[in-house]
Simulated assay, not measured.
Amino acid sequence: MDIGIGLPGHAPWTQGRALVDWARRAEERGFSTLSVSDRLVWTTPEPLITLAAAAGATSRIRLLTSVLLAPLRANHALFAKAVTTLDQLAGPGRLQLGLAPGLRDDDFTEGGVDYATRGRQFDRLLDRLAGVSRGEDPVGPRAATDGGIPLLFGGHSEAALRRIATRGTGWIAGDATVEGVREFTPGLAKAWADAGRPGAPRVVATVMFALGPDARRAVSAAIEPYYAFAGEEYASYGASAALTTPEQITTAVAGFAEIGVDELIFAGNDPDPAQVDLLADTIGL
């Protein structure tokens, strides 16, 4: 099982260069992937711009949006051009897109995008991205990655399963638990087989973490305000579910590996780049 690390974009970071330092350290310590999250109505950095900076600061580590709220990108041609440009800058095989339709209506209100039709807009965006990636569209450049940029879709809905089976390379599970992944994957495998896809879909799970003496404070400061929209109970649960001890980290690695997850990504909650080294030391990188 590959082990990746996620930038603390939803945490109270103040220096953008620290995120670039995270990227460099993540590659130096041997993490498989660097991920970045997405929100409009928050201080989360724009994911494609952030990964472009990471691409310039690194040469090997994979780059992932986890997850990008695709329907907010209402100009589909411009979005496709940004994605294929990033793929060219990063080099073949490095960029992966984790995509989802989005849940919070305030992101769509502030973005001037119709929340009710986001699913249809999502599919149209994917059509345009596919054409640009293959060089079959007047917009360019085409993707550097042969076969197009790998697409992972988030969510548990029938629409998510359809997109994975017909357009994607796999599923990305946010705030994942071993039990939740185990419950979802049989249906995922069936949808994949029913679509006539060979092999098996890639399964990527993401979990929240912070390490060190201030770990519990860091996750509270990052997660509780971020999930406050869902109510105090959910926000408190999100903070309590974050992994904050070496024992919890190693247990998670063992548990997700046992059920066949292809990659586990630990999303940071403390902006200090030293978190990269603490996690690498804990898992033996």
Score class of each variant (00 low, 15 high):
residue 71 P to N: 00
residue 28 E to R: 14
residue 68 L to S: 06
residue 35 S to L: 12
residue 43 T to N: 13
residue 111 G to A: 07
residue 68 L to Y: 06
residue 32 S to E: 05
residue 36 V to A: 13
residue 22 W to S: 09
residue 75 N to T: 05
residue 91 G to E: 10
residue 103 L to A: 12
residue 14 T to F: 08
residue 94 R to G: 03
residue 103 L to I: 13
residue 28 E to H: 11
residue 31 F to L: 04
residue 77 A to T: 15
residue 18 A to W: 10
residue 35 S to A: 15
residue 89 L to N: 08
residue 48 L to G: 08
residue 35 S to I: 03
residue 14 T to C: 03
residue 32 S to H: 12
residue 85 T to D: 09
residue 83 V to F: 04
residue 13 W to K: 06
residue 34 L to N: 01
residue 66 S to T: 03
residue 106 D to I: 12
residue 103 L to V: 14
residue 45 P to M: 12
residue 22 W to C: 09
residue 53 A to F: 14
residue 49 I to S: 14
residue 14 T to V: 14
residue 88 Q to F: 03
residue 57 A to K: 07
residue 67 V to T: 10
residue 10 H to W: 12
residue 69 L to Y: 00
residue 96 Q to M: 11
residue 66 S to F: 14
residue 19 L to R: 12
residue 67 V to K: 04
residue 15 Q to A: 15
residue 21 D to Q: 14
residue 25 R to E: 14
residue 29 R to W: 04
residue 30 G to D: 03
residue 74 A to M: 04
residue 23 A to N: 07
residue 78 L to C: 00
residue 29 R to K: 10
residue 73 R to Q: 13
residue 34 L to Y: 01
residue 7 L to A: 07
residue 88 Q to S: 13
residue 12 P to F: 02
residue 34 L to I: 02
residue 10 H to G: 06
residue 9 G to N: 10
residue 13 W to S: 10
residue 59 S to P: 00
residue 18 A to N: 12
residue 62 R to D: 05
residue 52 A to S: 15
residue 107 D to F: 03
residue 101 P to M: 08
residue 81 K to H: 08
residue 60 R to T: 15
residue 79 F to Q: 11
residue 92 P to D: 11
residue 57 A to N: 07
residue 65 T to K: 02
residue 42 W to N: 11
residue 44 T to L: 07
residue 30 G to R: 01
residue 94 R to E: 04
residue 46 E to L: 03
residue 105 D to F: 03
residue 9 G to E: 12
residue 51 L to S: 02
residue 30 G to T: 02
residue 103 L to S: 11
residue 112 G to Y: 09
residue 92 P to A: 15
residue 77 A to M: 02
residue 12 P to D: 03
residue 52 A to P: 02
residue 26 A to G: 06
residue 112 G to R: 10
residue 18 A to S: 15
residue 20 V to H: 04
residue 31 F to D: 03
residue 27 E to R: 07
residue 69 L to T: 14
residue 71 P to S: 01
residue 50 T to G: 11
residue 44 T to N: 11
